[in-house]
C-alpha cells in the first residue's frame, strides 16, 4: 500500500496551521490600524495600486478558508517526496497574506494602498525557507515501501489444459467521465453559436478535455497470450500494453483512486501506473522491475488468474 501515513499527513498539515496562527496573530496585533474594507487585490497600474477590496473581518475568514482549503488539498494528495511542496505552498501563501496586511497598515483610504511587485519575491523567499524546513522534516517520514504484490507464485490460478488457449476481455466504463466528456464536447458548438467570436475562444478547450475524456470513459481490457492490453472501447488506439514477457505476477484487489493514484483517469505515479475509472475492483499487474500497472475492471480475479497461468506457462516452455 502506498497510502500516506498519519505522520505524513500531520507534517503536511503542520505548515498551514503554523502559518494560519501567525497570520491571525499579526491580524489581531494590527487590527485597529487596518482600514475597513481592506485592499485585497492589486492591479498593474501605479506599481500595484489596489483595485479590489474586502471587509476586514470577511478577509480574515477568506484567508483562513484559503489556508485550510489548501491544507486539505495537500493532505489528500501528499506523498513523502512532495512534503516540501506543502511547506512551500504554506510559506508562499502565508507571506503574501501578511505582506498585504502590512501594505494596508495605517492607510487612511484603502484605494490608495500600493502592494509592490517585490512582495512576490519576498513570498517566494518565504516559500523557499519553509520548503527547506519541509525537506528537513521529510526524514521523519519512513520511506514508502515498494509495492509488494503477490508474484506469479502465490497469485490466483486458472487451470488450463496443455493444448488449451485462453483469452479474457471485458469493458470497463466510468459514467461520470462519460457525462463530463460529452458535456465538454457539447459545449463547443453551443458556445461558438451563442457567444461572439473573441469571447468564445475558451470553447476550443472543450475537445482538449472531451476527446481524451471520451477515450477513457469506456475502455476494453484484454488479457491473452500477448499480455495485458487496455484501449478505448471504440477505437483500437491509443493503447497501453504490458507484454507477457515483462509480467512478474497479477492479482485482483480494490484500489482507492485518490490515495493511491491521486485521482481518476490515466494516472502515472512513481512505480505505479493505472487506468483508474472508479474505486474498487482492479486488475493489478506487477512488472519484473517491481512497477505496478492497475486497471479498474470487474471480474479482475479471472483476469489475474489467467495472467498468472500464462506467465507460468511461458516460464515452462
Amino acid at each position: 500500500m502506498n497510502r500516506a501515513t498519519p505522520r505524513l499527513r500531520v507534517l503536511a498539515a503542520l505548515p498551514f496551521v503554523l502559518v494560519l496562527l501567525a497570520y491571525l496573530l499579526v491580524l489581531a496585533l494590527w487590527y485597529d490600524r487596518l482600514p475597513d474594507p481592506l485592499a485585497t487585490h492589486f492591479g498593474p497600474e501605479g506599481g500595484g495600486r489596489a483595485d479590489g477590496f474586502t471587509g476586514r473581518t470577511a478577509s480574515a475568514f477568506v484567508s483562513t478558508a484559503l489556508l485550510l482549503g489548501t491544507a486539505v488539498g495537500w493532505n489528500l494528495f501528499v506523498r513523502r517526496n512532495a512534503l516540501w511542496g506543502a511547506w512551500a505552498t504554506a510559506g508562499f501563501t502565508g507571506t503574501l497574506l501578511v505582506l498585504v496586511l502590512r501594505d494596508n497598515l495605517d492607510a487612511a483610504d484603502a484605494a490608495e494602498v500600493v502592494s509592490p511587485l517585490v512582495n512576490l519575491t519576498l513570498a517566494a523567499a518565504g516559500a523557499a525557507l519553509l520548503a527547506l524546513a519541509g525537506l528537513a522534516l521529510t526524514r521523519l517520514v519512513p520511506e514508502e515501501e515498494p509495492a509488494a504484490g503477490p508474484g506469479a507464485e502465490d497469485g490466483p490460478r486458472l487451470p488450463l489444459g496443455p493444448s488449451e488457449v485462453a483469452g479474457w476481455s471485458r469493458t470497463s466504463a466510468s459514467r461520470p467521465l462519460t457525462v463530463l466528456a460529452v458535456l465538454a464536447l457539447a459545449a463547443v458548438p453551443v458556445t461558438l453559436l451563442l457567444a461572439p467570436w473573441p469571447g468564445a475562444w475558451p470553447a476550443l478547450l472543450g475537445p482538449v478535455v472531451g476527446v481524451p475524456g471520451l477515450a477513457l470513459a469506456r475502455v476494453r481490457v484484454t488479457v491473452d497470450r500477448r499480455g495485458l492490453t487496455v484501449r478505448p472501447a471504440l477505437v483500437p488506439r491509443p493503447r497501453v500494453r504490458v507484454p507477457l514477457d515483462e509480467i512478474a505476477g497479477a492479482t485482483a484487489r480494490d484500489v482507492d483512486p485518490v490515495s493511491e493514484f491521486g485521482g481518476w483517469g490515466y494516472r502515472v505515479r512513481p512505480r505505479r501506473t493505472g487506468v483508474v475509472l472508479r474505486s474498487g475492483e482492479a486488475l493489478v499487474v506487477r512488472r519484473d522491475n517491481g512497477h505496478e500497472f492497475a486497471v479498474t475492471v470487474s471480474d479482475a480475479h479471472t483476469a489475474a488468474a489467467l495472467l498468472n497461468t500464462l506467465v507460468e506457462r511461458r516460464g515452462r516452455l
Partner: peptide, 9 residues
Amino acid sequence: MLFRVDPAS
C-alpha cells in the same frame, strides 16, 4: 468474459 478453446479437441 473468459474465452478458452482447445485446438486439440
